[in-house]
Amino acid sequence: MASWIEIGNLSDIPPRGARCVTTPLGRIAVFRTATDDLYATEDRCPHKGGPLSQGIVHGAAVTCPLHNWVFSLETGAALGADEGSVRTFALKREGEKILMDVDLMASVAAD
């Protein structure tokens, strides 16, 4: 069962940019693409722990600022030659508001 918590407004995030949400599980990066699609992933590259929220957002992908790994924001999978993935989180929009599913997070915590 999903339980949605409001985390902010669309305008809080620049297009082709990201902001962070701090949670007990660590930081989650919330991305906004050029076409205003929203995605959330853990803010930690599986390669060397780089903060993905600080990378360049292009299409529905982000490039890690430390060593240029590229991740699909939709699936969390590394693109190109690199192998690995980041966890993604469900978001939804209600008008301007952005909501995140915290139940999912709880299940992650229980892992």
């Binding site: 985390i7 809080d12 902001r19 701090t22 949670t23 007990p24 915290v102 139940d103 997070m105 709880a106």
Partner: peptide, 16 residues
Amino acid sequence: QHEFRPMAEIGFPRAA
């Protein structure tokens, strides 16, 4: 300013 602050801080989720 948005660069330097988290957008939100979430406490422990209710389930926990």
